[in-house]
Write a protein that binds this DNA or RNA. Structure first.
Lengths: 206, 206
DNA sequence: TCTCATATTGTACTAAAGTACAATATGCAT
DNA sequence: ATGCATATTGTACTTTAGTACAATATGAGA
């Protein structure tokens, strides 16, 4: 159904990559390593749950740069920074930008593994919700412009006759549109339709 | 309508309290200072937008202790730590526990003021949503046990006859309950009722 | 030109919900 | 005992929504 979890390690130091790989694979989780931020950006986004172990200081793009670029590209992935030489302002900056954790070397293996598992679980959940939202948007996309208008008003609680008046047509026509909306969106009750709209974020703005 | 914004400063060093007060009052925001975490906990919770400037190291309860106690008590308030002697693990711990920022002394006045204003704005929004939720829960509390059962099923999309069967009563009775639910909750359409239920977090579990 | 998706509309019926004007029953607190 | 909140139920009517079986109109694209 869903792909296996993967931990991505981005660090210019091969020995770090190697030891992290050993550690994480020892508990049965897949690992992929990248020697630079640029290399990771080239990789095709992973569909399954994932987590990024990231060094701050690297030649070329820094860990922060990668964090920003991923965020800008909408590639949401939990990031755990691991670094040897850090200061408070660096860690605060990383955390404010959404990092899950910021770990100094040396660290306890078990601590990292615990954080990793928590992050994977959260990512699993986030991916599920993301997939659901995509699914909903897709079905919403199958509506015609007119149907969408009717949909919005039905969900807002308008009566068919009110909608008909607003759209300058007859109640009978609204019934036709409404029936098609219910069919296309595979909803069986108004309550379900409203919940779908809420999930899709319709009706929030004003 | 709503109380004025207030910045709370908790620091055992009176000179810090004094200088922060001068700085913040210079831009027209009220300040209240406390020499200890315990002193702050005694204060009556503030209804308007607020923000807490908190020292980490203090005699008695530490800044972290205060942060945890506030969280445990459900007193949500944006916290900005200000400290002179910090390390990475302290700052990460604070940020993971939900702090808005973690600032080392010395700092730029304007930086603090900017963060302060952002935090106040977020808190304003959070308080608004919190008040709305309270309002909803209050109205839901005015329902009788039976009415709540009907409410849940209506919102789930059941027909009156189905609800009647499930509750072992007649459709006519359900209509009566349903009408009272709509009246008590001041909702005029099923769509509104469903949205209310979603906001109240009903129908999530299971 | 012909087809297809889309929008529109009609009639007539059924199903569901809402409403008006009720009455009855039960249990708890004063 | 009496009042009050709550739950229950009835009849009858109106309003909405849904559905079956349609037809018509229009514009875009093959």
């Amino acid at each position: 159904m869903q792909e296996d979890p993967v931990i991505f390690v981005v660090d210019d130091d091969p020995s770090i990559c190697q030891s992290l790989t050993w550690l994480i694979e020892s508990v049965g989780i897949k690992v992929e390593t990248f020697p630079s931020a640029a290399a990771f950006l080239k990789r095709h986004p992973h569909d399954g749950p994932a987590c990024l172990l990231l060094d701050v200081r690297m030649p070329g793009l820094s860990g922060f740069d990668l964090q920003n670029q991923l965020a800008a590209a909408g590639r949401i992935i939990p990031i755990i920074f691991i670094t040897g030489h850090a200061n408070v302002s660096m860690s605060v900056r990383a955390m404010k930008a959404g990092a899950v954790d910021f770990i100094e070397k040396p660290f306890e293996d078990q601590t990292l593994l615990d954080t990793l598992n928590q992050s994977l679980e959260k990512d699993r959940q986030a991916k599920r919700e993301q997939a659901e939202k995509r699914e909903i948007k897709q079905r919403l996309g199958s509506l015609t412009a007119r149907e969408r208008e009717v949909f919005k008003r039905v969900v807002a609680g308008s009566l068919n006759k009110q909608i008909a008046f607003e759209l300058g047509t007859t109640e009978r026509t609204i019934k036709a549109h409404r029936a098609r909306v219910m069919q296309k969106l595979q909803m069986r009750s108004l309550a379900d339709l409203v919940r779908l709209a809420v999930k899709a974020g319709i009706g929030l703005k004003k």
